Structure formats: structure tokens, C-alpha cells
Simulated scan of single mutants.
Amino acid sequence: MNIEIKKMKSDEEIRGKAYVHWKSWQDAYKGVVAQDYLDGLTIEKCEDIAFKFPENTFIAKDGDKVVGFATYGKYRNDELTDAGEIYAIYVLEDYYGSGVGQSLMQASLGELDYPMIALWVLKENGRAIRFYEKCGFQLDGREEEINLCGPIKEVRMIFER
């Protein structure tokens, strides 16, 4: 395994990111998110998203294959001032525990010049919460209910420098 972490640039890399997005949701959220939502999240929808928002994205490549990605930027609402956000971080299941997620997180944190970084994670996604805790994030008690073909809770986690 020869993993390279780099900024996403080419159309091929954008399509690879879209595949990781789609496949990660199918694998990680089965039984957590409504199956109707997962069925409606097609590879084409993930490609549309990837091509619409290509900026601020690191990808992890194993040879020519995109195996993970992270997107980041300024916190998306006014609740936290002077804060950054990890918008998404996904790694293919075959690469869990390989250090790919850690490398993507470190690259993203290195780009965010804020004293506080936030992220949102599904409350029922214990594996992701444990990963974020290992990266230095802590639950801050903030919850929101979102609708993914049914209500589901997200919790916010904070990393302070």
C-alpha cells in the first residue's frame, strides 16, 4: 500500500472522490440511515456534488485509485465565530485502520487557520465518533435533527488548538 495524500485536481480524481462518497455511505450507514435515502444516493448524485464543489478537498490515493477524501473550510453558520469545519471525511472500508483517515484529517487541519475546528457526525456512528476523538475532537453537547428520509440526530464535535 503506497498512499498519497494530495489536493484533488483532475476530473478522474473528482470521479474517484464521488465513488468513495457513494460507497462509504452504502457501507457505513446501512441500518443507520433510512434505506430509501441510501437507495436515492446514486453515484451520479455523488458525481454532481463532487463536480459542483471541488475546492478544499484532499484525496488519498493508493496508486491510481482514490480511497478516501476530506473536505474542509470555514464553519458554515454564524453560531461559531472564527472557526473552521471538517465538512466530510470518508475512507473506503478496506482502508479502515490503515492511517488513511488520520492522514486526511491532519492535512485538512493543516489548511484550517482557526483556533477551533468543528464537525458534525451522526449520533449513531460510534466508529466515526471514536475516530474523531482519537484525532483530538470532543463532543460539545450540541445536537441537531436532520431529515434523511426520516429524522436522525447529528452531534457536533470540536477540536481546539
Rank of each mutant, 00 (worst) to 15 (best):
E47V: 03
D11V: 12
Y72Q: 05
G40R: 00
L119E: 06
R156A: 03
Y132L: 00
I59F: 09
I43F: 14
A88M: 11
D140A: 08
D64R: 13
A128E: 10
S10Q: 03
L112R: 09
P151N: 15
A18M: 10
I129E: 06
L38S: 02
L122I: 06
N77T: 14
R130H: 09
I89E: 01
H21S: 09
K52T: 11
S103I: 03
L119V: 10
Y90M: 08
Q138M: 14
K45S: 14
L92N: 11
G110T: 08
K123S: 15
I129W: 02
D64T: 10
E133V: 05
A128L: 08
T42E: 06
Q102A: 11
G73M: 00
G73I: 05
C149A: 15
V100T: 06
F51A: 03
Y114E: 01
Y132I: 02
T81K: 01
Y90Q: 04
V155K: 11
L92G: 11
V121H: 10
I129D: 06
E124R: 12
Y75V: 08
F58W: 02
G73S: 08
E145W: 04
F131W: 03
N147Q: 11
V91G: 00
G101H: 05
F131P: 01
A60K: 07
Y114H: 12
N56F: 05
K7S: 10
I152A: 03
N2R: 12
M105W: 04
E133R: 04
L38M: 03
P151L: 10
I129Y: 07
C135N: 13
R127G: 07
